[in-house]
C-alpha cells in the first residue's frame, strides 16, 4: 500500500513545481521590467553614446516586444541558460559556479548551527514550560530572530572577533584562496581544499566560516526554537502520549519517541520555508562579512543596475528555493506516512 505511493507522491510534487516555477519566473521578469528606465541606459547610460547604447540594446534583443523576451527568458531558464551580465559580460552560470560554493557552505553551516542550537533549546524550553529557563530561551529566540543581520554581524565583529582574533572578512586568507583556486575542481573552496589534501587551507577556511555562519545561524535558530517548543508542548499533551504513558512506557522514551519525534515533523516543513529567508539573510551576511558568495554578487549587480545580472542570480535563487521545497516535501513524506496519502 505505502510502497507504491511514495514514488507517485514524489512525481506529483515534482510536477507541482512547474506552475510554481512559472509564477516565480513571471514575477522576476515583470518586476525587473516595470522598474523605471531600461537595462542598457540604466547600467551604461552616460558612459556610451546614444548609438552605442542602441547597438547594445539590439544585440541583447531588448528592443523586441516584451512577450518575445518573456518567452525567450522562460525558454532559456528551462535550459539553465541564465544569460550574461550587461556591465561586464560575465556568464551568469560562471558567476554561479565561482560564487555559489561560498554561499552554499555559508548557508549549510548556518543551518547546522541553527538546528544544533535551536532544536535542543526548544526542547529544553518545552520541558521546563514557564520556568526561568523557558522564559530566557524564548526571549533569546525572539531577539535572535528580530535583530537585523548586519547588527548581529557588527556585534560579532566587535565582541567576538576582537578578543578571539577570528577572521571577519572573506572565506579564506588571500594567499590560501589563491593557492586553492588555481586547481579548483568543484569551486567550493572547502571541498577543493579537502580534495587537494591542503589541511592548512581546510582549517583556514573553516575558521573563516565561524562568524558568518554564527550570524546567519542565529537568525534562523530563533524560528526553530519557537517551532520545536510549541510543537513539543502540543505533542506532549497529545492523546497518544497519554496512551503511551498508560501502557507504562518509560517517560524518557515517551518524550523521545512519541513527543519529540512527532514534534519535529512540522519543523522539517519550516526548514523548507526558511530556505528562502536564509538566502535573503545570506545576501546580508555576505555583504557584512565581505563573503565572496552569490549574495555579494547580487548586491554588486543591483548597485551597478545590471538587470541581466540581477535577473540571472534571482532566477537561480528561485530555482534553488523550488528544489528545496520539493526535497523537504519528500523528506516529510518519508518521516510521516500520512503525508503520502493526502
Amino acid at each position: 500500500m505505502s510502497a507504491g505511493s511514495l514514488p507517485r507522491y514524489v512525481l506529483q510534487r515534482v510536477l507541482l513545481v512547474i506552475p510554481m516555477m512559472f509564477i516565480l519566473l513571471t514575477v522576476v521578469f515583470v518586476l525587473l521590467r516595470v522598474a523605471p528606465g531600461d537595462p542598457i541606459s540604466a547600467s551604461l547610460g552616460g558612459k556610451l553614446t546614444e548609438e552605442a547604447i542602441n547597438a547594445r540594446r539590439e544585440m541583447l534583443g531588448l528592443n523586441r516586444p516584451f512577450i518575445v523576451q518573456y518567452l525567450e527568458y522562460l525558454g532559456n531558464t528551462a535550459t539553465l541558460n541564465f544569460g550574461e551580465t550587461i556591465t561586464d559580460n560575465h556568464a551568469i552560470l560562471d558567476i554561479i559556479r565561482d560564487n555559489g560554493g561560498a554561499t552554499l557552505t555559508l548557508t549549510i553551516g548556518a543551518f547546522i548551527i541553527a538546528l544544533g542550537v535551536g532544536i535542543p533549546l526548544g526542547r529544553i524550553a518545552a520541558r521546563g514550560r514557564d520556568k526561568a529557563r523557558d522564559v530566557v530561551i524564548r526571549v533569546f529566540g525572539i531577539i535572535s530572530y528580530a535583530t537585523p543581520i548586519f547588527f548581529v554581524g557588527l556585534l560579532m565583529q566587535l565582541y567576538i572577533a576582537r578578543p578571539t582574533g577570528l577572521p571577519t572578512s572573506g572565506i579564506a586568507s588571500p594567499r590560501i584562496m589563491h593557492a586553492v583556486n588555481q586547481n579548483a575542481i568543484t569551486h567550493v573552496i572547502l571541498v577543493d581544499s579537502v580534495i587537494q589534501g591542503n589541511w592548512a587551507a581546510v582549517g583556514d577556511v573553516l575558521v573563516h566560516h565561524i562568524l558568518p555562519c554564527l550570524t546567519l545561524g542565529m537568525m534562523i535558530c530563533g524560528v526553530f526554537i519557537r517551532m520545536v517548543r510549541v510543537n513539543l508542548l502540543q505533542t506532549l499533551q497529545s492523546d497518544y502520549v497519554e496512551a503511551a504513558r498508560a501502557r507504562g512506557i518509560h517517560e524518557s522514551r515517551v518524550v523521545r519517541k512519541h513527543a519529540f519525534r512527532n514534534a519535529l515533523v512540522p519543523v522539517v516543513t519550516i526548514v523548507g520555508l526558511q530556505a528562502a529567508m536564509t538566502l535573503g539573510g545570506a545576501v546580508l551576511t555576505e555583504s557584512t562579512f565581505n563573503w565572496p558568495g552569490l549574495g555579494t554578487q547580487l548586491m554588486h549587480y543591483i548597485q551597478a543596475r545590471d538587470y541581466m545580472g540581477v535577473q540571472g542570480i534571482v532566477t537561480f535563487f528561485a530555482l534553488v528555493v523550488a528544489a528545496i521545497s520539493v526535497i523537504v516535501d519528500v523528506v516529510n513524506a518519508l518521516i510521516d506516512p500520512r503525508v503520502r496519502f493526502e
Binding site: S238, Y240, A243, G248, K257, N262
Partner: peptide, 19 residues
Amino acid sequence: RGRDLAMIFQEPLTRLNPL
C-alpha cells in the same frame, strides 16, 4: 501501569502514534 492496570480511551483516532 500497562502490565497490571491498563486503560482504553475514548478517542481511538488520536490514541495511536501516527508515525
